[in-house]
């Protein structure tokens, strides 16, 4: 019983991409990493739908997988759209007319929602003028880079193909790093930007760790962001970018190949993944 390796590609490539997501987010310059992860997630989600669609007519299991993927993507897209609309509406109702909305709240908090940056009076009181610039530049970088849209794309893609799930967290981290580097550039001082992030995180207090598993000694995102700013500035990751996009190309090239021949081995590939072959 021979199984054509090609048949596994719609599953293998996203799995490889998901494994590679975290290293990509850490090694590539954050802006490049964000775009590579988004394009990769969207492209791979589509590329894995194409062969399923082609097989769906003749294979009940493929048809079910295809239906589940499309339904998952559609539900996620609807949820994202609704969350973005709610956030925009709420952002309009916030006090003030400009981008910045200051809210009277002693807790130390700051975030951006599409269109607005919200900062508590507690946060403003904890930072001097230069430190505030780091904070504003970071949050405004989220807005001008439209990071919420990139995040929405990856969430929809990973809902359509759950193998891509780890890319959500990787993109989330990459966009935070992107905003950090923009903030550091705005004040011209990466060490200072690192200190502000660290200071705010320490002042905000700790929460019980939500990470699961035994012996998870990996540092959380904040220490990694601070360490990245204290280290050397990111270098171009041309080789990694090409490799990541090559992965997409590889998946994109095989998809029409499989579609062209509906009796091609992918059926067996899918059945093997699902369980014992009849």
């Amino acid at each position: 019983m021979t199984v054509d390796l090609d048949a596994y590609l719609p599953f293998v490539v996203p799995a490889v991409a998901a494994l590679a997501a975290r290293p990509l987010a850490e090694r590539l310059p954050p802006r490049t990493a964000s775009w590579v992860l988004t394009v990769l997630a969207a492209g791979l989600a589509i590329a894995s739908l194409v062969p399923l669609f082609a097989l769906a007519r003749g294979d009940l299991f493929a048809a079910l997988l295809f239906a589940a993927a499309v339904a998952g993507g559609a539900v996620a897209a609807y949820g994202q759209g609704r969350a973005l609309r709610t956030a925009r509406r709420q952002a309009r109702d916030l006090p003030g007319d400009g981008v910045l909305a200051v809210v009277a709240d002693d807790r130390i908090d700051a975030y951006s929602v599409p269109g607005r940056v919200v900062v508590s009076t507690g946060m403003l009181g904890a930072l001097d003028a230069g430190e505030q610039r780091v904070l504003f530049a970071h949050e405004i970088a989220h807005l001008s880079g439209r990071h919420h849209l990139l995040r929405a794309v990856v969430r929809v893609a990973s809902a359509a193909n759950p193998l891509l799930w780890p890319m959500r967290r990787a993109l989330w981290y990459a966009t935070e790093r992107w905003a950090d580097e923009r903030a550091a550039a705005a004040v011209g001082d990466r060490v200072m930007a690192a200190r502000v992030i660290g200071k705010v995180a320490l002042a905000s207090g700790t929460a019980p760790s939500v990470r699961m598993g035994i012996g998870t000694t990996r540092p959380g995102p904040v220490p990694r962001r601070v360490a990245a700013l204290l280290g050397p500035p990111p270098r171009r990751g041309a080789v990694l970018t090409v490799a990541a996009l090559g992965l997409l190309l590889c998946s994109g090239l095989t998809a029409p190949d499989l579609v062209g021949d509906p009796h091609h081995a992918p059926v067996s590939g899918i059945v093997v993944v699902a369980g014992p072959r009849r």
């Binding site: 951006s112 599409p114 919420h148 995040r151 969430r155 995180a201 700790t206 929460a207």
Partner: peptide, 13 residues
Amino acid sequence: AVLARFVDSLSDQ
């Protein structure tokens, strides 16, 4: 996805 907080909460570690 829509709310980008400046920092997340830290674990003790």
